[in-house]
Amino acid sequence: MGLGAYVAVSAALFGLGIVAIITRRNVLYILMGIEMILNAANINFVAFNRFGDNGLDGRMFAIFTIILAAAEAAVALAIVLNVFHLFSSVKPSEADLLRE
C-alpha cells in the first residue's frame, strides 16, 4: 500500500479524535480523543519515515510522542481526579471556571 493510504487512515483517525473531544461529556473521552490524535500523528511520522529517505527521524519522533503521551496520560489522569474532587463531576462542561 502507498503512502496515501496511511495518510488517509491517519486523517480519519484524527477526525475521530476531534469528534471524541468535542462531543463527549466525560473527561475521559477527551483523554481518549487526545490519544487518538496523537496516534494519528504517529502513523504519519512513521509512514513518511518509511517512505521517505531521512534516516530514523520520524521513528524517533514517534517514540518521543509515545513517551509524551504516556506522561500526558499520567498527568491528565491526576488532573481528572482533581477536577472530580473539585467539581464532584467529570463533565468538562461543568468545569467552567475559565469563564469567571
Binding site: T23, R25, L28, A73, V90
Partner: peptide, 16 residues
Amino acid sequence: LLLFGVMLTPPDMSER
C-alpha cells in the same frame, strides 16, 4: 491508566 480513571470516577450516564 484510563481504566483506572474510569474506576475512580462515578459512572456518568448523562451522555448526549
